[in-house]
Every structure is written in C-alpha cells, then in structure tokens.
Write a protein that binds this DNA or RNA. Structure first.
Length: 577
RNA sequence: GCCCCGGUAGCUCAGUGGACUAGAGCGGUCGCCUUCUAAGCGACGGGUCGCAGGUUCGAAUCCUGCCCGGGGCGCCA
C-alpha cells in the first residue's frame, strides 16, 4: 500500500526535476498518515519540497502530482490537493482492509521487517558496581536497555545484553573496608563514626570514640546491607577474621552477595544478561597494557606530574585526561577504552552504551580514544537516560545516596509489580527526567493506571473469545473473514491504528526511543476499550454470522498487536484480569 | 565560567519543519448501569508551546541570544 505510493512518488519527483534539467539528488517527500481522516489515508508534501527546485508555485506542482497519482488506480483511489500544496490520497475501500488479513497471516511477526539486517549488536546497560542495592536510576536503565534490546531483536538484529562491572577499583576496596569496620563494631572492638559527621564528607574524622578506634572509612558505604553482610560473616566465622584485610574476604563476600542480589532484582524484572564482563579480566589478559601501549605508539599519550595523560585535545575534545594516576593505578578511563576495543574484537558490529546522565561526560573520551585505536566511531552509540524522582502523595520522596537512604528497585518492584514498574520506566523519553508517580502506579483501577489499561485491553480480547465459545462460536479462520464488513468509523479508526504498528516499531528501534511503543499501545487500547464498551451500537457477538466473523477477526488482530507490543515492553499479556 | 538534557493544559508528559480546532493521561465540572468484566462510557472546561529576534511559502519543531530547572566539568566510577 504505502510502499507503492512511496515508489510512485519518487518516480514522479524525479521526472519533474528532470523536466527542468535538475539532475541533483531528489528530495524525499514525506508520506504520512494524517491526524485528521479528512486529509486522506496518506498525505504527502512532495509539491512543497519541490516548489523551490522547480521555481513554480507548490499548488501548481501539486496538481500535476495529483493527476499523475490519480492515473494509477493501484496506488490511489481518490486524490485531492489541499492547503498550501499537500496531496491527499485515499485508498480504494477494499484495500483498506488489507491490514487485517496481513496481521492474521503474519501473527506475531506482524510489524517486524521482512528482511532483517542481522547486525551483531551489543547493548551494554546497568553496569553498576556491586557496592549496594540498585537505585531507581539503575532500574530505569535496566528497563530501557532491555526494552531497546527487545526492539532491536524485533527488527532483526542479533543482540547481546552485557553488564560490565568494575570489580577492581577503589570502590570495591572501600566496600570491603566498610564491611570489615561494621564487623569490628559488632564485635565491640571498634566504634562507629559519630552520626553527626556523616553528612560532612570533609569533616574531621575522630581516631577513636569512647576509647575504641574508629575503623569505618571516610566515604564508606553506610547502608544497612553492609551491616547485614558483616553480621553474616560474624555468624559464620566468629571473631576469627579480625586480622583479615578489608580487601580480602570482606570484600569478596560483599561483592558476591550484592551481585547475587543484582541478578535476583533483574530477574524479577524479567531481565537476563548474556554476558557479565569483569574489568579485572582486562588486566589479567594484558588488554589494559596493550591499549596504553598502542595509544602511546600513536603519540596520544604523555607523562606529566607523575601521571600518564591522554592527549584528548588532539582528538578534538575539551581537555586532556589522566589514564594512569601518579599512584600507578589506572583511572576508569583506560579500562573503558580497552573494553570498548575488545567489544569490536569480539565481533560486535555495533555497540550501544546505555548510561546515566552522570556518566555522559565520559563518553566522548572513550569513543574518540577507541576510534583512535581503530574502532568505527559511528558504531559506538550512546543512549543517555536522566534521573528518576519519586512522587508519593503529591510530594517528591527525598533520597540520599550518601546516607544510603534511598528507595531500591527491589522495594518499588515489590510495591507496584514488575509490569507496572517496567511500563512506568519506559513510558517517558529516556533523555528527559522521569517522575515516577507511585500513587498512580499503585492504582488498581485499570482505567487510571496506564499499564493495566493496556493489559486489560488485551485481556478483553480473550474475554470475548470466552464469551463466543460459551455460545458455541469458534474463532474464524482467515478464509472465513470478510474485512469489508468492518465499516463503522470506530472500526476504520482501529484498522488505521493497527496499520501504524510496523512504523512505530521501526521508528522506535532506529531512534533508540522505546517510549514510542508505550504511547502507541496506550492509543490503541484507547480506541479498543471504548469500542468494546459500546455494546448497543455494535456488538462483536451478533446474529449476523458474517459480521460476527469479521469482528472476531478484528479481535484477533487487535490481540496480536497488543500482545506483540506488551512483549516488546517486557510486560505480561494476561488473558484475564 | 564551560558542556549536556529539559522548559508544551492545574499536574505528569507526547509531538521536534507542515495545513482547519497543538494532542494524551491524571485531576476538575456535567451527564449516563448502554456492555462482550461499571475495574465502564460520553461531554465540557482548560495552553502567549520559557522569552526575544532570525531563516522559511509555512516554526512548538531549525538558527542566534537570553531566562529558569536538573546533571556534569576529579590523578572518583
């Protein structure tokens, strides 16, 4: 339908340009489904984009395009010129219903491109260091990365979900020391730091309190989970670990425990990673040294102030950055560069980093440096996500990472459920702030809670099927359906909406903006629920068998798209609610 | 000071070059048991698209400047 129109238009545009001796590449006119049905099944701005090139008023060109289109009944049934020079096109009545047959034929594949690219894509997301429970920012990123992955899979890419974690750096040492300190406190051989200085990072830190030494490190991890881990170690090992370094069993135990919790949290959200990639492996395999050596060879590295610097200014960036500290320890930047190079060596053709706004500054350095090492720069993509705030009872819930006083993903998922959590986290554009309205998320009334609204629209398709079976009616096969019987405006609206689905998937995937899927589903459900509600003007189940079959076909088509959409978002598609 | 993201209805947000009425949800007001789940439906009200210039046949959408909010600018990750 649309493809033929697009092709035909391209042909006409080319001809018009040739006629005036313009051989430059032709502009690509838009072909859109207008908001207002009165503007046709499709509308194109071809005449408007050609106006300047042809040096003729757009209306005049529009007339020529219109008559060219009208000459071919296979693309247009009726054509009209409107406004400043739009050409509105109507399809013949029966062609309108093609989409219904197509959906029933293609089933779950409807909306996915016929010729997948099959590119090997890696999506790296969450990548939180195991120093504490996942925050809502991580939660948003988890849903975003997973949904994006599902979208790319739907469009035919071969996706690997990867979680990178830094298990070698200072953060993990501090975690180990924090656990050890709590352990010593619990044994009564160390004192906790006084409460009042915890919020003042640079405050004087007493060596001892009440005659006991203070073991807790500055900038240490304050959450209760640290004490819990310490308590478990104490239960298992008694006081035998007093002489152990914080960097030893305390650290490894804490890391393992927290990491297990990550997996459990993510599993509750139906998120599974294909690869967990450790920073330490880059050291063990010499990849860090190699990257540094290669950068040095390319003249992109210099030594100053006892540190090793990346000549980032030469790569077109704001300032140079430290790769190896004067302590001899690399910064996070160097492993990141080596890691990205490894991604391509491992065979990925495209890598997408999903990162929070707090890391965004870092990205250009990694990308440029990786490019300098031979990686294809344009195939290293960033999908940025902004922070999440919580609103409860009309007020913002205060959160403090510093005091480890924050709502975790676990807690919120438990409160609202995985389906609602995922829907709320994905329904906003990723690079804007997200205000998570807990009251709305907890709302059980399906007409108010958008996640339930969509799920219920799906459940109702099964409700009708159940009702039909009770009446001894089975769902129709493709041959038994005459879509032309669907002629009410509400039904045409639904068909128009269903036809948009492939474009929604394509656009959401290509722009890396999964939120379009959530919006689309809400809109489709917003047509479907009211349609089912009006049981007087039209009922699916009726005493007209042909009409009933056509409407049951519509039920199946709507179900197919809703189920497919819910699956893309990682939500369940219940048959009953 | 510099960089990134945002500023659209009372609230939360879609829309980022196109047309007459700039959309949705929530909240508000009014009406309705009509149903294949009343866990419903319909109607109404509500907007100088942050401000000012510019480009364009056409700007919420592109450009410039400014204002406001968030984030970043570390030999932390």
């Amino acid at each position: 339908m649309k493809e033929r129109l697009v092709a035909k238009l391209a042909e006409i545009v080319r001809r018009e340009l040739d006629a005036v001796g313009d051989t430059a590449p032709a502009p690509v006119p838009s072909v859109e489904v207008p908001r207002q049905p009165e503007h046709g099944d499709f509308a194109t701005n071809a005449a408007l984009v050609l106006a300047r090139r042809l040096g003729r008023p757009p209306r005049e060109t529009a007339e020529r395009i219109a008559s060219a289109l009208a000459a071919d009944r296979s693309v247009a049934d009726r054509v009209e010129v409107a406004g400043p020079g739009f050409v509105n096109v109507w399809l013949a009545g029966d062609r309108w219903h093609e989409v219904l047959r197509q959906i029933l034929r293609d089933g779950a594949r409807f909306g996915c491109p016929a010729t997948p690219r099959g590119e090997r894509v890696q999506v790296e997301f969450v990548s939180a260091n195991p120093t504490g429970p996942l925050t809502l920012g991580h939660g948003r990123q988890a849903v975003l990365g997973d949904t994006l992955s599902r979208l790319l899979e739907a469009t035919g890419e071969s996706v690997t979900r990867e979680f990178y974690f830094n298990d070698g750096g200072r953060q993990m040492r501090v975690l180990g020391e924090s656990v050890k300190a709590r352990y010593l406190e619990q044994l009564g051989v160390a004192a906790p730091p006084p409460d009042e200085i915890l919020d003042a990072p640079e405050a004087a830190w007493p060596d001892e309190v009440d005659g006991l030494p203070v073991a807790f490190p500055k900038g240490g991890y304050l959450g209760d989970y640290v004490s819990d881990i310490a308590a478990e170690l104490r239960a298992k090992h008694g006081s035998s670990l007093v002489e152990e370094p914080g960097d030893g069993i305390f650290r490894s135990e804490a890391q393992a425990r927290i990491f297990d919790e990550f997996r459990a949290t993510l599993a509750a959200l139906r998120i599974r990673f294909d690869v967990f990639y450790n920073e330490t492996s880059l050291y063990e395999n010499g990849k860090i040294e190699e990257a540094l050596g290669d950068l040095r060879e390319k003249g992109l590295v210099y030594d100053a102030d006892g540190a090793v610097w990346l000549r980032a200014k030469d790569l077109g960036l704001d300032r140079d950055r430290v790769l190896v500290k004067s302590s001899g320890e690399p910064t996070y930047l160097l492993p990141d560069i080596a890691y990205h190079r490894e991604k391509f060596r491992r065979g990925f053709e495209r890598v997408i980093d999903v990162q929070g706004a707090d890391h965004i500054d870092q990205f250009p350095y990694v990308r440029k440096a990786a490019a300098a090492l031979g990686c294809p720069e344009e195939r290293i993509e960033l999908v940025m996500n902004q922070f999440v705030t919580l609103t409860r009872g009309g007020e913002t819930v205060k959160q403090s990472k510093r005091r480890a006083n924050y709502v975790t993903v676990d807690e919120l998922v438990e409160e609202v459920g995985a389906d609602v959590f995922r829907f709320f986290m994905i329904q906003r554009k990723a690079d804007g702030h997200l205000d998570f309205d807990v009251d709305l998320a907890r709302e059980q009334d399906w007409k108010k809670n958008p996640a339930y609204y969509v799920q219920y629209a799906h459940a109702r398709t099964h409700g009708i099927e159940r009702k039909a079976r009770e009446a001894g009616v089975s769902m129709p096969s493709l041959e038994e359906i005459d879509p032309a019987r669907l002629s009410l405006p509400e039904e045409i609206d639904l068909l128009r909406k269903l036809r948009e689905w492939p474009e929604v998937i394509e656009h959401a995937a290509e722009s890396r903006e999964p939120h379009h899927v959530a919006y689309y589903l809400r809109e489709l459900a917003g047509l479907w629920n009211p349609y089912l509600q009006d049981g007087v003007r039209h009922r699916v189940l009726s005493d007209d068998p042909d009409l009933q079959a056509a409407r049951l076909g519509l039920v199946l088509a709507v179900r197919t798209v809703l189920a497919g959409g819910l699956d893309l978002l990682g939500l369940s598609a219940p048959e009953q609610m």
